[in-house]
């Protein structure tokens, strides 16, 4: 069992919401990963749908590069549509 691969678990909590990463677990294959995820992550009514992805298939950005990747967005306020005056009657914006 120590050879079981690691799986990343994504749970959708409600219809219409995105699947959200909730954690990881070990399982021998995808079937077992879904069953384990059901038991580990949805027993308190957290979900209506489960995705599992073997962790090795997740490719991540490197923390070392976060300066060049993310900092440039810091001073570009004009990319947010915050300069419009909206009428009060407008909701959900």
């Amino acid at each position: 069992m120590k050879n079981w691969p690691l799986w990343e678990i994504f749970i959708r909590s409600k219809q219409g919401l995105h699947h959200k990463h909730v954690g990881s677990l070990h399982a021998a294959d995808e079937k077992m990963a879904i069953e384990n995820a059901r038991d580990v992550y949805t027993r308190r009514n957290e979900g209506i749908s489960i995705w599992v992805v073997e962790s090795k298939y997740i490719h991540a950005s490197s923390p070392d590069e976060s300066d060049s990747l993310f900092d440039p967005a810091n001073d570009k306020v004009y990319r947010h549509p915050t300069f419009y005056n909206l009428p009060d009657e407008l909701e959900h914006i």
Binding site: M1, W4, L25, H26, A27, N36, D39, V40, R43
Partner: peptide, 12 residues
């Protein structure tokens, strides 16, 4: 349980 995941499954 033999591993955490099965421990929780059995307890469920």
């Amino acid at each position: 349980g033999p591993v955490l995941e099965q421990d929780i499954a059995l307890t469920n």
